[in-house]
C-alpha cells in the first residue's frame, strides 16, 4: 500500500499540495481565459516604441503588442524575424498601464520563457515571425503566462486550444492591409461551427478525425455554438470598416497591426477603429468615425502569387 500517494494512477480534483496554496490558485486555465475575456470588444494594436504605445493607449486600445518591426516592415525587409528586444518590451510596459503582449516564434519555447520572465501579459505564438519549429508548437500548458495563437480553420483553432492557447485569432495575412484572408479565415471557422452545430452526434467522431482536432473540444464547440475561448480577428485590418466587418462576422475583438502606424494620421485612425469596434452595428457612427482619416495604409494585392503567405507557415 502506498500511503504517500506513489502508485496512485490518477488523482482528480485534489489540490491538497500545501497548507495554504490549496485555496489560492494562479494561472489556472480560467484565469488565463479571463484576461482574454476582459479584452473582448476591444482593439489590440501593434506598436514599436513607447511613444506609439502611449498613442495607442490614449486612443483607447485595450492592449498593445510590443514589436521591433510591424509586419509590413518584416514583409518588406525580409530576413529572419525573431522575438523583440526584451529591453524594448520593458520600456513599452513601463509606458502604459494596459496589458502588453509580445510575439514569440512558433515552437520557440525559450523565447516564450524569456517573455514570461519579463512579465508580458500575453504571448502571441505568431506565424508572422520566422518559424523555429515546423512540426511542433509550444506546449503552452507549461507556462503561467497565457498565449494567443493564430488559426485559419476550426481544426487549427482547436489544436491550439488543446496545446493550451487561451485565446485564438485569425491568421489573416499580416502586413498587407488586405482583409481578404482574415475574412476567409473567420468565415471558415464560423461556417464550420454552424455545420458542426447541425451535425448528428454520431458523425462528430469522424469529423474530429477529419479536421485533426481533439474530440472533446469538438463536442464542446458543438454544444456552445462557438469556440470555447475568445476569438479575435487579425491580419490585414486597416480601416474602421474592416474592423466592424470582422466584428459582425462574429469575432470578439480585433488586432490591428501595421494598419495604424503605417497610415497618415495614426492617432486619429486608432481612435476611429476603437470606436468602430464598440459600435460595430451602428452604420451612422461608423460613417462618422470613418470620415477624414487621411491616407490608409497602401496595402498589397494578394492575388499576386509572389507575395509570401505567412498564414501557410504552420498547421
Amino acid at each position: 500500500m502506498a500511503s504517500d500517494g506513489t502508485g496512485v494512477v490518477a488523482l482528480y480534483g485534489s489540490t491538497n499540495n500545501g497548507l495554504e496554496s490549496s485555496n489560492h490558485k494562479s494561472a489556472t486555465f480560467s484565469v488565463k481565459v479571463g484576461l482574454a475575456q476582459m479584452l473582448r470588444g476591444g482593439v489590440i494594436m501593434d506598436v514599436v516604441t513607447p511613444e506609439q504605445a502611449r498613442v495607442a493607449e490614449e486612443a483607447g486600445a485595450c492592449a498593445v503588442m510590443a514589436l521591433e518591426r510591424v509586419p509590413a516592415d518584416i514583409r518588406a525587409q525580409g530576413g529572419v524575424a525573431r522575438m523583440s528586444d526584451p529591453g524594448l518590451i520593458r520600456d513599452i510596459k513601463r509606458a502604459v498601464t494596459i496589458p502588453v503582449m509580445a510575439k514569440a516564434r512558433i515552437g520557440h519555447f525559450i523565447e516564450a520563457q524569456i517573455l514570461e520572465a519579463i512579465g508580458v501579459d500575453y504571448v502571441d505564438e505568431s506565424e508572422v515571425l520566422t518559424l523555429a519549429d515546423d512540426a511542433h508548437h509550444i506546449n503552452k500548458h507549461n507556462f503561467r503566462v497565457p498565449f494567443v495563437c493564430g488559426c485559419r480553420n476550426i481544426g487549427e483553432a482547436l489544436r491550439r486550444i488543446r496545446e493550451g492557447a487561451a485565446m485564438i485569432r485569425t491568421k489573416g495575412e499580416a502586413g498587407t492591409g488586405n482583409v481578404i484572408e482574415a475574412v476567409r479565415h473567420v468565415r471558415s471557422v464560423m461556417g464550420e461551427i454552424r455545420a458542426l452545430c447541425n451535425m448528428d452526434e454520431d458523425e462528430v467522431f469522424s469529423y474530429a478525425k477529419r479536421i485533426a482536432a481533439p474530440y472533446d473540444l469538438v463536442m464542446q464547440t458543438k454544444q456552445l455554438g462557438r469556440l470555447p475561448v475568445v476569438q479575435f480577428a487579425a491580419g490585414g485590418v486597416a480601416t474602421p470598416a474592416d474592423a466592424a466587418l470582422m466584428m459582425q462576422l462574429g469575432c470578439d475583438g480585433v488586432f490591428v497591426g501595421s494598419g495604424i502606424f503605417k497610415s497618415g494620421d495614426p492617432a486619429r485612425r486608432a481612435r476611429a477603429i476603437v470606436q468602430a469596434v464598440t459600435h460595430y452595428r451602428d452604420p451612422n457612427i461608423l460613417a462618422e468615425v470613418s470620415s477624414g482619416l487621411g491616407e490608409a495604409m497602401v496595402g498589397i494585392n494578394l492575388s499576386d502569387p509572389k507575395v509570401e503567405r505567412f498564414a501557410a507557415r504552420s498547421e
Binding site: N23, H24, K25, S26, A27, T28, S30, V31, G34, L35, P99, E116, G119, D121, Y122, R144, V145, P146
Partner: peptide, 10 residues
C-alpha cells in the same frame, strides 16, 4: 499586479 499574478481563490 500583472496577468501572471492573476489568480482565483475561495
Amino acid at each position: 499586479g500583472s496577468q501572471i499574478q492573476s489568480f482565483e481563490t475561495e
